[in-house]
């Protein structure tokens, strides 16, 4: 894991303004979707991002892809030797930089324009970059389609000819057409049936091996994340609570929230005890997060200090970070 980081994210903050109604819409507050997240991700690694709905998983992915406005922080991308400050890119620089990073969506039905042929869908990123003549583009498309196990015959069909799994392969082909280095997979296998899902996971892992890709893998299904990731970060109301290599996180979690998450995954292994840790209450509103540790409202170990002070993001074991006042006491 001692590779040079491909992506370094520091203190990333994404706040969405809440407007009041009316003609002169004033900013009435902010939803702090992502509020101070830092990590770095090496070439060929996969960072799994888990957390419950509303925790800011999707926002982190989209922020790195510059699909929405970042409030504060920095994102550095080591594309070809020189580090590039992603947030400083604008206009055509940004447009050309987009070839390095792509998004694979959750819903393979909504993410393909039903009115375009598969060929045109995969060609779009190349055409936008003016990546050569029609013939050159066609050659590249055939190559990338073959990588994603689509045959030439499929290219002249429309998306409605394909099942969910096949559509997701088309999405992957589109994302790979510009030979990106970094892919954000936002719940990319969640909408697929189990028997199909395995095939897409295998394809993603094979592609990573062959092409040296780096993934940010966002999912709510912990087993899937565990399977594909080299390290996993747990997100709670816009902040990381814990970040560790996969096995370490799943088998030796430090943070009480991670423990609760892990214990709640239903497993088909009937000999393993299924005894979910009970969490009181509901996930707090990210527009008004609780003071101190954001998890204190639901934490079974919360003490006065958890309400008063924000816990420090600290390395407790090699590569194993957590933000909790009581790590030492409860483990």
């Amino acid at each position: 894991m001692e590779t040079t980081p491909l992506i370094t994210v520091e203190d990333l903050r994404v706040h969405f303004p809440i407007y009041s109604k009316g003609l002169f819409r004033k900013v009435a507050g902010h939803v702090k979707a992502v509020d101070g997240v830092s990590f770095s991700l090496g070439r060929g690694e996969t960072l799994g991002l888990v957390g419950e709905s509303g925790s800011g998983k999707t926002t982190i992915g989209r922020a790195i892809l510059r699909a929405l406005d970042v409030t504060a922080g920095s994102i550095t991308f080591q594309a070809n030797g020189d580090p590039v400050d992603l947030l400083a890119l604008h206009g055509s620089n940004l447009k050309h930089f987009r070839r390095n990073m792509q998004l694979i969506f959750q819903d393979p039905y909504a993410s393909l324009n039903p009115r375009m042929t598969v060929r045109d869908i995969i060609a779009e990123p190349l055409e936008c970059l003016n990546a050569g003549s029609r013939q050159e583009i066609d050659e590249q498309i055939r190559a990338v389609a073959a990588t994603c196990k689509l045959n030439v015959e499929h290219l002249r069909r429309f998306p409605h000819a394909f099942s969910g799994g096949q559509r997701q392969r088309i999405c992957i082909a589109r994302a790979l057409s510009t030979h990106p280095k970094f892919l954000v997979c936002d719940e990319s296998v969640s909408a697929l049936d189990v028997s199909i899902q395995a095939e897409v996971i295998n394809l993603l892992m094979d592609l990573q091996q062959e092409l040296g890709l780096t993934y940010l893998f966002i999912a709510h299904d912990l087993s899937v994340v565990a399977h594909i990731s080299t390290q996993v970060a747990v997100l709670y109301v816009g902040r990381f609570t814990e970040l560790a290599p996969t096995k370490e996180l799943f088998f030796k979690p430090l943070h009480p929230y991670t423990k609760a998450l892990m214990s709640a995954v239903p497993t088909i292994d009937l000999d393993r005890e299924f005894n979910p840790l009970k969490l009181a209450g509901e996930i707090p509103n990210p527009a008004a997060p609780p003071p101190g540790c954001r998890f204190h409202t639901r934490c079974p170990y919360a003490k006065q200090i958890c309400i008063d002070e924000e816990p420090e993001w600290k390395q407790w074991r090699p590569h194993h970070y957590a933000a909790c006042h009581r790590v030492a006491e409860i483990n």
């Binding site: 969506f105 990123p125 589109r174 510009t178």
Partner: peptide, 26 residues
């Protein structure tokens, strides 16, 4: 708000391309 429009934007499609190739036909 559709995903495929975002996909086009992330592919570097210009506003006019998004409008003529995706939005209008839709």
């Amino acid at each position: 708000g559709e995903d495929y429009v975002l996909a086009a934007e992330l592919s570097g499609a210009s506003a006019s391309r998004v409008i003529t190739k995706h939005l209008l036909p839709s």
